[in-house]
């Protein structure tokens, strides 16, 4: 085992006494306290502070218009311009999902369906939002551009069952997404 010799910094007398640092600390904390009481904390404006600290008062104030472009909210399923459900239930998201929040039951598309050539779609698609950690790996791994993290962050429920988003709910939140690669539409 390698020995790492740590050189502690040499302290001068004032630093050894420690009182100077204490006083400085008190000034620092009190400055913060006064500033935050006056609503002048650093970043209070850019974070749309409620006037106390940098915090937004949640139910009255909403973050919605401040959400950044890259915000990762609830994972959802999307349909495309043709109204086709894009998911083909390849189960890669189920595989990659770190907290194992996704559960897919694959199913076959009946032959009378206009998209019968796609052959496969999810029969059931459940995302347990209690487990979901909003990491976005499902979106990244999806080979069909079918699962996207939307900006919904208010995922609440009164029962555990309410927190499991089923296929209908996922499509309802996800909506239609345009401008995706339509690989099944080609003469293929």
């Amino acid at each position: 085992m390698a020995v790492i010799k740590l050189q502690r910094p040499k302290l001068n007398f004032g630093e050894k006494i420690y009182f100077g640092a204490l006083i400085k600390g008190f000034f620092l904390t009190m400055t913060h306290a006064v500033k935050s009481l006056r609503g002048k904390s650093a970043g209070a404006d850019s974070l749309a502070s409620s006037g106390l600290g940098v915090t937004m008062q949640f139910p009255e104030q909403r973050w919605d218009e401040h959400l950044p472009e890259y915000y990762r909210g609830a994972p959802t399923l999307v349909t495309d311009e043709q109204g086709r459900e894009r998911c083909v239930s390849c189960q890669l998201c189920e595989f990659i999902c770190p907290p194992k929040a996704i559960k897919i039951t694959p199913g076959e598309i009946p032959s009378d369906d206009p998209w019968a050539k796609v052959e496969k779609r999810p029969k059931e698609f459940d995302i347990d939002m209690i487990r979901c950690i909003y990491c976005g790996m499902c979106e990244e791994v999806c080979p069909e551009q079918a699962i996207f993290l939307r900006k919904d962050y208010l995922i609440t429920g009164l029962k555990r069952a309410d927190m499991v988003h089923d296929k209908d709910k996922l499509y309802q939140i996800g909506g239609v997404r345009t401008g995706l690669v339509n690989k099944w539409n080609e003469l293929k």
């Binding site: 913060h32 935050s36 915090t55």
Partner: peptide, 10 residues
């Protein structure tokens, strides 16, 4: 409350 204002919280 005091710790909150010290830390710029509510």
């Amino acid at each position: 409350r005091f710790s909150a204002v010290i830390q710029d919280r509510v």
